[in-house]
């Protein structure tokens, strides 16, 4: 047996890697199917069956997506909305989750209960009341209005994740920070980096959600179409009598690249890192 295979982990890797490659290919297959569908004609897409590669490579779908869905105009808005809503979401949910996980204070149970309870009730008419609110703030047809609505809606589960993270942190950590003379805000700033995995989770999901959101950017910019984002633009493929699926696929292909990049960067945070910080 050679030295390579003598290592236990190398052997593991050969088995696991092979297995993962097979599962991974099956898993990713439908996804690849969409990417390749952006190069097909619509009749080929519907009759292709399992076949991935198009018979002839058709770039017209991308041209159509770019112009018809106004990607050239909307890309900037999409980036702005997603980046700012993510930043706001991160700040507010980490602060709230930190306090809820770390401290006991009057009203804590009530807040946690409220957050939990509201998760259950599907809101039938969410856009209507939100619309009234943003209108009464005078933020209709403005970018801040869109960003506010985007970062206002979804924080509950992120708060729960931060709470769940900070709560079991050992008291010794906070005690040592206190002994070092750190005040409230300084302690928070010391603790926050520990929550990297949660931060990464929030950034990935909030970025993805706001990147693809179409209802809010549409409804809050009705008077100014130039403020819309790409997801709204993609609706141009849904006609009165038919759907332009290949154009939609091309639009999807273009618009998911930034999301995958964000994922690729932030997934680096999922590296076990707590052990060094906690000296038991």
């Amino acid at each position: 047996m050679n030295t390579f295979l003598r290592s236990r982990y190398n052997r593991y890797n050969l088995i696991a890697g092979g297995l993962l490659l097979i599962i991974g290919f099956v898993w990713i297959y439908p996804f690849l199917w969409v990417l390749f569908a952006s190069f097909k004609t619509s009749s080929e897409m519907f009759s292709a069956g399992a076949k991935l590669l198009p018979e002839t490579w058709d770039f017209g779908n991308f041209y159509r997506a770019w112009t018809k869905a106004n990607f050239n105009i909307y890309f900037f808005n999409t980036l702005l909305y997603a980046a700012s809503a993510t930043a706001i979401e991160l700040v507010k949910s980490s602060m709230c989750g930190y306090v809820l996980g770390r401290y006991r204070f009057p009203g804590r149970t009530l807040i946690l209960g409220l957050i939990t309870a509201t998760l259950f009730i599907p809101i039938a008419a969410i856009i209507l009341p939100q619309f009234q609110l943003v209108r009464s703030l005078g933020l209709l047809n403005t970018r801040p209005g869109v960003i506010l609505a985007l970062s206002g809606g979804a924080g509950a589960l992120y708060v729960l994740l931060f709470t769940g993270f900070f709560q079991p942190l050992p008291d010794e950590l906070f005690e040592s920070a206190r002994l070092d003379g750190a005040n409230f805000v300084q302690t928070f700033r010391l603790m926050l980096p520990l929550a990297k995995p949660i931060i990464a989770t929030v950034v990935i999901f909030q970025f993805m959600r706001t990147w693809n959101e179409f209802n809010i950017p549409l409804v809050f910019t009705l008077g100014r179409p130039e403020l819309r984002n790409m997801a709204v633009g993609m609706y141009a493929f849904r006609g009165e009598y038919s759907v332009d699926w290949t154009g939609f696929a091309a639009g999807t292909t273009m618009s998911i690249i930034p999301v995958l990049i964000v994922f690729f960067i932030f997934q680096g945070y999922f590296v076990r890192g707590l052990s060094g910080a906690v000296k038991q």
Binding site: L80, A83, P193, I199, V203, F266, V271
Partner: peptide
Amino acid sequence: LQKRNLIVLLVLVVAMVTAVACQP
């Protein structure tokens, strides 16, 4: 990791600032 954290936040901030600066 600390550094990376900073970099990422920086990217976000830069994105926002550029965004605001180059508003049509």
